[in-house]
Structure formats: structure tokens, C-alpha cells
């Protein structure tokens, strides 16, 4: 039984079980209040699922891509919850959850997942479809681009169906983790997908004041 947490878009938390399915699933699309809501959503989710911390077997964290400040809140919460509860931390790429939800809803074939990256850019991930286990098959590592780039006819994944999302379903993040565990597959690297360098400029020394 897994607790799944994602703050790469809004804030979403779910408790999923390999056998019993989704036991609770709460989210908010608010992109400004991750730190405020994260605790309440986790507590409420465990409550609604009627699950004690001791019943959990792992904590899934959505590693992005997503706007940095919010993204970090969920990763910090998931990693530290895992530490506190003595559970393994299971990193999953957030876009994989969005892709899984589309494939589960019946979509077949290629897919480009697109989310807001702020500063007039988007994050994207391209998939060729779902494999035999039901897991999304990624064509490339997540990217960041100007929205117009994805609309260009010669963009490398221009032909694929596009799925824009404003929230990342934590239940599907948990399902991805369940599928990875059940099929003995590797999890994502335990590192936040920032996709941008911290934007700081090295100054050329102090400016004159007189």
C-alpha cells in the first residue's frame, strides 16, 4: 500500500493498493499554496483511506518536471515522510502519471504530455504508447520548450496526440509505482526534474557609483 505525493503542478495526494485499488485521492489545482496544503492533504488522505502509517509499504514522490518552488515541497515531504515512517522512497516522473491516466482511459498509440513550466514555457514528455504491463513507454527524457516549438510541423513529436494537464493525478502516480514494483522495473532517478539551471547571472564585478 503506497502513499503518493505530487506538487509538480497543483498538490495531489493518494493512497493506492495493488489489490484494492485507489483508497483515497485528493487534489487541488492551486499552484500557489503547496506548503500550506501539503500536510492537511496527506493527513486527510490517510484518514479517508482509513489507513495508518504503519500499513503503508512505500512513499511515491512525483519528481517533476514542474515549476521549482512548488515541486520541491512535495519531494521534500515524500522523502521525509518515507524517512520518518521507515519506508522506501519511490521516485516517479510526474508526466508518467498523466500518460498512464490517458492510456487507462482508452487512449492508444503516441502521446505528448504537456504541463505549464511558468515563464511562458511548457514541460513536455513524449510516449509511444503503453507496454504489456500497462506502463507508458517514454520516447525521450522530459523537456522544456516555448509553446510555439511544440506546434511547429517539423517538431520531432509533432504527429503525436497532445495531452495538456493542469494537475498530476497522484492515484496514477501511485499506480505507476505499483506497476513498476509488480513488474520488477526500475524507478526514476531520485532527483528533481528541474530542466532549467538556477537563473543567476555572474556579475563582472561591482559597478561604479561615482
Amino acid at each position: 500500500m503506497l502513499l503518493a505525493i505530487d506538487t509538480s503542478a497543483g498538490t495531489s495526494v493518494a493512497v493506492v493498493d495493488g489489490v484494492r485499488g485507489v483508497l483515497a485521492d485528493i487534489d487541488t489545482a492551486d499552484t500557489m499554496r503547496h506548503a500550506e496544503v501539503i500536510g492537511r492533504l496527506i493527513a486527510e488522505c490517510l484518514d479517508r483511506a482509513n489507513v495508518r502509517v504503519a500499513d503503508l509499504t512505500g512513499v511515491v514522490g512525483g519528481m517533476g518536471p514542474g515549476p521549482f518552488t512548488g515541486l520541491r515541497v512535495g519531494i521534500a515531504a515524500a522523502r521525509v515522510f518515507a524517512l520518518g515512517a521507515g519506508l522506501p522512497f519511490l521516485p516517479v516522473i510526474s508526466h508518467d502519471a498523466i500518460a498512464l491516466s490517458r492510456f487507462r482511459a482508452g487512449h492508444t498509440g503516441g502521446l505528448v504530455v504537456v504541463t505549464d513550466a511558468r515563464r511562458r514555457e511548457v514541460n513536455w514528455s513524449a510516449y509511444s504508447g503503453a507496454d504489456a504491463a500497462g506502463l507508458p513507454v517514454r520516447l525521450a527524457a522530459p523537456g522544456v520548450a516555448k509553446p510555439a516549438v511544440l506546434l511547429e510541423p517539423d517538431w520531432v513529436y509533432a504527429g503525436l496526440v497532445r495531452a495538456d494537464a493542469v494537475t498530476v493525478p497522484a492515484a496514477d502516480l501511485g499506480r505507476v509505482a505499483e506497476l513498476l514494483l509488480a513488474n520488477d522495473r526500475a524507478f526514476a532517478t531520485d532527483a528533481a526534474f528541474y530542466l532549467r539551471s538556477p537563473d543567476v547571472t555572474l556579475s563582472n564585478g561591482p559597478k561604479r557609483v561615482s
Partner: peptide, 14 residues
């Protein structure tokens, strides 16, 4: 925000 998110999660986990 990193510390706040972590602290809340730790409190709930414990």
C-alpha cells in the same frame, strides 16, 4: 517552503 513541507510530512509520519 522546503523545510515546511518536510516538517509537516515528518510530523504526520511520526
Amino acid at each position: 517552503m522546503v523545510g515546511v513541507g518536510a516538517a509537516k510530512a515528518l510530523a504526520i509520519a511520526l
